[in-house]
Design a protein around this nucleic acid. Structure first.
Lengths: 285, 285
DNA sequence: GGGCGAATAAAATTTCTATTCCAACCAGGG
DNA sequence: CCCTGGTTGGAATAGAAATTTTATTCGCCC
């Protein structure tokens, strides 16, 4: 009632421990339970919590109010953020970052923008390393390394990713062909794919029609397909032999490519290592 | 209704993906949202979820029933367990990640390589934010924003960077031309540059001859030049009006592009903000 | 193009939950 | 022993949320 209610999980935890000895017997009992079962506090109803803690529902309300909240719901909100943040906080963190920084005055200066992007991209790289399933990545690398020729396809925003791979795979003497659709001849370029090859396709949200076409064609000819996309439900994922899911940061309505590029690079190097020409040349330009 | 309702988060995820194509349009929309925002599914109310997903609350119920649950609450319970479980395993994942890093043998597996790249790139992003002089960045942004037309030039490893910029600048309706040297006509494309335009050139170590040529030509015609390169002593830096120096990470003899891409993106957004069309569109592909 | 059935939206209903309130309770001091 | 401060338990209440019901729309087949 009297003091300000903690708004972050950490603050709350500290407050509970500090005020513990000043609480009444029943409230101490609840504090104990809250510290021991934060998940229950976040997910269960007052009735359930009351039962599990062996108290009356109204005592739960009193507990919340004792820490300055208007009611239990407000307290529960704090426990929920704790849970959401600690879980797969990725998009949550990015969203918060965006909210925090977009209204800061410096966010419109170039260096402010740069700092935001650096920060956001660092977070997305952090998660990239943890989120990609090793087995999936392994299969993707093997798929590419075992192919006679690697066809690369990506339009619009995805194009830089495959452009980079075309270059990098060339550096390790892999037989890579970039399907660039130059002169409207994407179909012509793609028609030679066969089952001994592999198609590496990159496609993000609005999912360019051309890429979908190439994938469909590859699927019809039993060409293995490695896909890099942003959702397992994306139309391109359906035909994938191996599907790599990636979530790049988005800021100022621009989606980044950092994580995608990083993954592309790691894949290329892995293919190189598999082919025994990983750390080959001295330089690349 | 007909089949058994999934009781574990993993099962549920698989069921959603498998049945996706059999669902009605609205239900697909919800499935999409559920896959993308599991936290919301666990913590928010039907009304809130409905609003965020852009559907009616009753549609959420139908969604739950479509997977065999008696109602939404039962479905939500599953998402809650997912959240609760991942909360406890998060620190576990971090610990594993750290432990693995000390393990040198893993560095040749794809996930080991990926982790190294993520780590290295995160460090380079950290430095990027600190190393770039705000004034230089500001001048670069103004230079680009004030130009009638932006010519983009980058070969080999630098190409993905300018390819991305060509795309991104197009998104904000800037007049950008990618000098891709297609059909050996790089000279033809470059000849129209004049003093009201600007040339944005990217060039790294062995410094492609074509890029140097374009820069030389631009300089002769008094075209302002913004250069992104890896050394102030590089041959391309000499002619630069504004010179941005960048140091991407290098691993396994492959130089990354992460920092360059990040800078390119920050620049593009800054140009957009300067032109007053920064956060324009809803989406970009 | 008109009628049929499924899918959806909107309103109405029911269920459940947080919260309030007050009587009973307990401890300590007169 | 009884009053007095705070504390507790549990019924009552107000409100919100899930669910059901009812119209309406949409898409498809004849």
């Amino acid at each position: 009632m009297e003091t300000q209610a903690p708004e972050t999980p950490g603050e709350l935890q500290r407050r509970i421990l500090a005020d513990y000895k000043n609480l009444s017997k029943r409230l101490q009992q609840i504090a104990q339970f809250a510290v021991d079962h934060p998940n229950d506090m976040a997910l269960e109803t007052t009735a359930t919590i009351a039962e599990r803690a062996g108290v009356q529902p109204s005592a739960i309300i009193r507990f919340a109010k004792a820490f300055g909240y208007s009611g239990f719901s407000e307290l529960q909100r704090v426990y929920q953020t704790r849970l959401a943040e600690s879980a797969s906080s990725y998009s949550e963190r990015l969203r918060r970052l965006r909210r925090d920084e977009e209204n800061a005055t410096e966010s419109v200066t170039p260096q402010g923008v740069l700092r935001q992007f650096c920060q956001a991209n660092r977070i997305s790289l952090e998660h990239l390393a943890a989120d990609i399933a090793p087995a999936t990545l392994e299969r993707a690398a093997q798929c590419l390394a075992g192919a006679q020729r690697i066809y690369l396809c990506g339009q619009r925003r995805s194009f830089p990713v495959v452009a980079y791979m075309a270059y990098a795979l060339g550096q390790i003497d892999a037989d890579a062909v970039l399907l660039d659709g130059l002169g409207g001849m994407l179909g012509q370029q793609a028609v030679r794919m066969n089952a001994a090859d592999v198609l590496f396709a990159v496609s993000f949200h609005p999912y360019a029609e051309e890429t979908a076409d190439v994938i469909r064609r590859a699927d019809e000819h039993n060409v293995p397909i490695v896909v890099l996309t942003d959702s397992p439900l994306s139309p391109v994922a359906a035909h994938a032999t191996v599907c790599l899911e990636i979530h790049d940061a988005e800021l100022h309505n621009f989606r980044s490519l950092t994580a995608s590029m990083c993954l592309a690079q790691a894949l290329t190097v892995s293919v190189g290592l598999a082919l025994g020409r990983g750390d080959a040349e001295s330089d690349n330009g």
